[in-house]
């Protein structure tokens, strides 16, 4: 067995690893040995694709039945995309139910402050803290069937001082409202109205905004799917090339 293992291993680099190579039986040693061997032509992409799914997980690890996107995965990816010369643009695909306010805002700020073109696409849902992330890109799309739930921030757990807690919640909410209003075409009054609406959600106050309505309110730029999002990203990349030269430094007059 050991002998066979080494022989096979030794042959690996010489064997053409094309798509025609028979797929190894699942669980076989051969499958293990091939890890890292490039079997597809390495079509270099100049577009990064970042998916944000399930719960956006931040300071606390959620129980394992939750599907999560961790900020420690997303933030380094965005840093890498920003500083890698080969990456021309970033597509952010969202299908999220919300999550940690700070993690969500951190990701949204990272996307919004990138110098490279960014396009966000909401598929399925971009709820709660997914809303700031969805509007953070330079251009945003929402699938027609996708929805975004806009509702107030809730506090769970022990409340010691009601006025202080209320004040704190207000401030947390203000961060979200401010970000969304600053990065989309929706007015603050409209956003707050959607957030505080009663009678739309069974378990909460707020609104579920459908794809078309999100565009009508100015929250999202356009209706579209992967094709439109990629085309728009390509257009933004082309428009931003060649990279802008640093402007000549003007003397600072104190």
């Amino acid at each position: 067995m050991n002998q066979q293992h080494w022989t096979r291993d030794g042959e690996l680099p010489a064997a053409p690893a094309g798509p025609e190579a028979a797929p190894p039986a699942p669980g076989s040693l051969q499958a293990l040995e091939r890890v890292g061997q490039t079997q597809l032509p390495d079509a270099d992409t100049d577009l990064y694709c970042i998916t944000i799914i399930g719960q956006i997980e931040g300071h606390l690890v959620l129980p394992p039945q939750n599907k999560t996107t961790k900020y420690e995965h997303i933030i380094p990816q965005l840093v890498a995309a920003e500083q890698n010369d080969k990456i021309k643009g970033v597509l952010v695909v969202l299908n999220t139910v919300g999550g940690d306010v700070e993690a969500g805002l951190a990701i949204a700020e990272m996307i919004a402050t990138m110098t490279k073109p960014t396009v966000t696409l909401v598929l399925g849902g971009g709820h709660s803290i997914g809303v700031p992330v969805a509007v953070a890109g330079r251009y945003s799309f929402i699938a027609e069937s996708a929805t975004m739930t806009i509702h107030p921030i809730r506090l769970t757990g022990m409340v010691i001082g009601a006025p202080a807690s209320w004040e704190y919640l207000e401030r947390m909410q203000e961060r979200v409202v401010r970000f969304v209003v600053d990065h989309s075409k929706i007015s603050e009054a409209q956003f707050r109205e959607l957030m505080m609406k009663t009678g739309e959600l069974a378990r909460d106050i707020g609104t579920t905004v459908m794809g078309k309505d999100a565009v009508r309110y100015g929250l999202i730029d356009d209706i579209g799917g992967i094709g439109k999002a990629l085309a728009k990203l390509r257009e933004l990349v082309d428009a931003s090339a060649p990279p802008p030269q640093t402007p000549p430094q003007k003397p600072v007059i104190q």
């Binding site: 719960q55 931040g58 300071h59 606390l60 939750n66 139910v97 919300g98 999550g99 940690d100 306010v101 700070e102 969500g104 709820h127 709660s128 803290i129 739930t149 509702h151 921030i153 809730r154 506090l155 769970t156 919640l169 947390m172 979200v176 378990r203 909460d204």
Partner: peptide, 9 residues
């Protein structure tokens, strides 16, 4: 830490 999500706690 505050969770802002539509999933009930």
């Amino acid at each position: 830490m505050i969770l802002y999500t539509i999933v009930p706690p």
